[in-house]
Design a protein around this nucleic acid. Sequence first.
RNA 1: GCGGAUAUAGCUCAGGGGUUAGAGCGCCUCACUGUGGCUGAGGAGGUCGUGGGUUCGAGACCCAUUAUCCGCCCCA
Length: 418
Amino acid sequence: MRIQAPRGTDDLLPSQSHRWIHLENEFRALTSLYGYREVRTPTFEEIELFIRTSGETSDIVSKEMYDFYDKGERHVCLKPEGTAGVARAVVEHSLCPQGQVARLSYITPIFRYGRPQKGRLREAHQVGLELMGSASPTADAEVIEITAKFYERIGIQDVEVQLNSIGRAECRARYREVVLNHFAPYLADCAEEERAKAEKNPLRLLDSKDPKAAELAKTVPPILNYLEDESKANFETLQQLLNEAKVPYKVMPDIVRGLDYYTDTVFEVLSTKLGAQSSLCGGGRYDNLVKELGGPATPSVGVAMGIERAMIVLEESGIEWPAPRPAVFVVQATEDAAQACRAITRDLRAAGLETQIDLDGKKMGNQMKQADRAGAKFVAMIGTDELAADAVLLRNLESGDQVSVPRANLVKEVQGRL
RNA sequence: GCGGAUAUAGCUCAGGGGUUAGAGCGCCUCACUGUGGCUGAGGAGGUCGUGGGUUCGAGACCCAUUAUCCGCCCCA
């Protein structure tokens, strides 16, 4: 059988890669306005890193790790998410000394071993931010504002920012009992699998798709009622800050995140154009993570946005970004013009103009076709006449107009017409 | 990891037990006699996902396997 790309992976081809580059450039341009600097951490890490941070019982760790033993018997893992590696690097290089703030961004592949479908691959890609060293809700607001601005900037419309606070560990422990009690009638006679799930993370009951559970979920008191004073105050401040920044959001008491490290603020951005995988990004506050990795107490907040999912929404929305195209295709009308053509090609490129030229001595008509197919804006042609006159015939492929210009002026003539 | 659907040319798809497997688009060549897009004429390209089986005969039927898509779990 012919070798094909591994299950759940995708080749990014030239017809698409310019869109990714565009999205990444928009991300970099936006985040650098806020002072974020890019970090690149390894593609694989010791598996322990993710077990410690995401939590042993999280789905990511318990069933989706792309892990293996290397030749040195080290148990390693392709990173399933971006935050843990960045936090590890921050601790390792003391990037966020006490009392300071670090603003970091990343663009990375992530790996999760699950059953693939559209918008959920085994190798996916994310752009993300980590704002470390501040416990203030202004930090949460900054990250959420950038996230909203990012989608706005790339032209994604129908999005909804969903916001919640899940409090601190003690609050969640108390709320856990509330939920278990509330759902007791349901848990008494539901499937074993459901019960095990509820045991692991009772908050999952809140967004269950089981009709009976969903019914009970309507009447469960929200976790917001159980927040400690500080959490509650911060959540209120955050909402004021978002109002102030004119970032629309919706408080959703049932959003819970799958990773153990979140504290207080959690949020997601959803799109109506995504189907079952409706989540465009996820983020939240993680005040204990850096400390757990052996660093100083470093309250932090971050977000990770899925590139593939953004691309799906962009496509569904009919948003097209222009593909790169050559400014000039140089056509050799006769064989004796080949050297002159190579020379003007060099001149054009030296002037920063994307220029292509035929390699195989094809006929002129074929060269014109190549120019057309490549999407060139101009053809610069040299044949016997031009050679004699030291000129170049410059043809606009869109209008069909053409003029003969002195060879020495070619670059200027092209630049003047672009 | 569980359930379901699908797999035929580069792309989108037709063909449903019987001779050399088709279409549209794309690709190549030629003509239009220094010019692409339009037109016309030719042409290349498929072990019908892979491996077994049933049959006189399989692209069609059966089994397995791999991949994709949809739903669940979960999430980006």
